[in-house]
Design a protein around this nucleic acid. Structure first.
Lengths: 158, 158
DNA sequence: TACGATAGTCAACGTGGTTGACGAAATAGT
DNA sequence: ACTATTTCGTCAACCACGTTGACTATCGTA
């Protein structure tokens, strides 16, 4: 009895959560690549989302994503390199470099949102809409989602 | 309207799944560190589990985890360095190096399983046992969990 | 004006992954 | 028995994503 039974309940839950997430993300990027955005990587959609329509700075982005400003800066570098973000100087503060979503970035984000909606609809077709809603409600209850601010001002369009 | 509304349903689902997973894993490692296993990192439990009681090789481990044999080998290196795995020569095949869980590894695995069980019990307390079961059933249905073989022979205790 | 807080960047490092190449050992085929 | 192929492990180079610490430039304020 050197190892624990992997079918025991406790082990399944995290695995299933991860598998669900991965399935969604894999499907998203398969579809995104087909629709002309092959360079968008798993986390990029969330980063683009976190930058928002109004733009941000690397430091603020790091706070929103719960990572260091240096890590946020490097991620911005990569997104700039593939044309989804751009950096502009802030005329009112020479220390700051505003990060903004480019038109191509906005296009990719729009497609991501559409694909996610379609994937959620597939879940609703298979499980029934009320089970998907229940699943989301339960996860919202358990996942003290503080590590990723879904309600950050600036995430909304316009 | 440069960005999509982050509160739209499709965007919530992957975020919530990830948040649920992260919450579980973070709680696990907080507790594991408290119980004498601070060097166990997020994926190590799954790797230990995948090695199983009978031992494996790096190549086989890579197949079980869905990663390259080289990546599996590096992960084994790290686990060996912290004393959770060991490598022994295979007397029947000089090419192979058997990877085995050490007593300390088995101990960490046992504690992980116990903690996961406790965490799942907390979920059941908050949501009700039937909702946790439903959540697992639904995820099993949607997450075509092929990327991670939960039913690999050898995962069960000796 | 001098000082403390803030923004961004650089460097070094850790972890988890990839591919390609390669030697050594096992195995299959003639 | 010998050659040809497959398999196992490893090395090297590289990438994505994260960390800390240190440092400069700039801003805001006492």
């Amino acid at each position: 009895m050197a190892t624990a039974d992997p079918t025991r309940p406790g082990f399944q839950l995290p695995l299933l959560l991860l598998a669900g997430f991965r399935t969604l993300i894999d499907d998203l990027h398969t579809e995104l690549a087909r629709e002309g955005h092959p360079e968008l990587r798993p986390l990029h959609g969330f980063v683009l989302q976190a930058v928002g329509a109004g733009g941000t700075t690397a430091t603020e982005l790091g706070q929103r994503l719960g990572i260091s400003k240096q890590a946020a800066g490097k991620t911005v570098d990569r997104l700039v390199a593939v044309g989804y973000l751009e950096r502009v100087d802030d005329p009112s503060d020479a220390r700051r470099r505003l990060v903004r979503v480019t038109p191509r970035g906005a296009e990719g984000l729009r497609r991501s949102a559409e694909i996610f909606d379609r994937l959620r609809a597939q879940w609703a077709d298979t499980l029934g809409p009320e089970r998907v809603t229940a699943l989301e409600d339960d996860l919202r209850t358990m996942a003290s989602a503080n590590w990723f601010r879904l309600d950050v001002p600036g995430w909304f369009g316009g």
